[in-house]
Amino acid sequence: MHELSLVEALCKELLQQGQEQGWARVTRIALRVGEMRQVVPDVLLFCFDVASKGTILEGAVLDIVPVPLLWTCRECGNVWPGDAACALCPNCGAVRTELQEGAELEIDFVEVEDFGESPEEATKECRSCQDW
């Protein structure tokens, strides 16, 4: 269940940004998830539903964009898509290899609504500033 830990970090990061930038609501989140993270999308979505309740993230569509593994060899420069079980360079057999892509857990972009856009938010805004 590391999905819940990941979702908590995701929510914390976005709620902080939302507060700093004054978002009223987040409607969509594009999240790049590397294959090495072993995330189960359904579990991630379920955790997100639970963790986002009562926040500006509630009801947002969470788009999980999988990022396949891509290795690079630091000896011969070979780049290959591979599976998690083998980090040896298939070209030269070198052990000095690096995971170039596939460890991501990155918020790519979000779709947000600002205050004053939806009718109920507009009312809320005006009530709070009492300038009707």
């Binding site: 940004q17 969509r28 918020i107 972009f109």
Partner: peptide, 8 residues
């Protein structure tokens, strides 16, 4: 809604 790039 507007799009905000995060890349973070």
């Amino acid at each position: 809604p507007r799009l905000v790039n995060i890349r973070r």
